[in-house]
């Protein structure tokens, strides 16, 4: 019985130490043959399950960078690029965005021209707006290399 209690204590310790710690990852990748500066019009495709308006945040941030941006479920006729995203949320006292991936794609064949991802666990959580900022900053920083 004592051994079982020790085992349970060890498992609890492992679970507690690996789930509550602060982990931050932010990466971006850009196809070397792509010039993001040559794109003018982008469309942010709204995720059907997104109730947090992440598409609007992304569209606003891209507009502030000088792009002509539309957003919604319907794709306009001829954008230069389509922006997709995947947001993952977790609960820890309140809901927070755990991970955000943004991909800028060729509208013709969905080829990923550029992609960025940010991952922040609860202790270093960021607001959705800050997450969008971080991902896009990393993408354009990578593109400017």
């Amino acid at each position: 019985m004592k051994k079982t209690a020790l085992l349970l204590a060890a498992l609890t310790t492992v679970a507690a130490t690996t789930t509550g710690c602060a982990i931050n990852r932010a990466t971006a990748t850009v196809d070397p043959s792509v010039n993001l500066g040559s794109l003018k019009a982008m469309h942010v495709a709204k995720q059907p399950k997104d109730d947090n308006g992440i598409n609007v945040l992304i569209a606003e941030k891209l507009r502030s960078r000088g792009y002509s941006v539309t957003t919604g479920s319907e794709k306009p006729s001829a954008p230069d690029a389509v922006v997709t995203y995947i947001d993952r949320w977790r609960w820890d006292i309140t809901m927070y965005m755990l991970e955000l991936t943004i991909t800028i794609r060729d509208p013709g064949n969905e080829y990923p021209l550029a992609s960025g991802k940010s991952y922040h666990t609860s202790l270093t959580r960021m607001s959705p707006s800050e997450m969008v900022d971080e991902v896009l900053n990393n993408i354009f920083k990578e593109a400017g290399k």
Binding site: M1, T4, L7
Partner: peptide, 10 residues
């Protein structure tokens, strides 16, 4: 019972 529980958890 304790041992079986421990084995099941692992």
């Amino acid at each position: 019972y304790g041992r079986v529980t421990g084995i099941l958890i692992v």
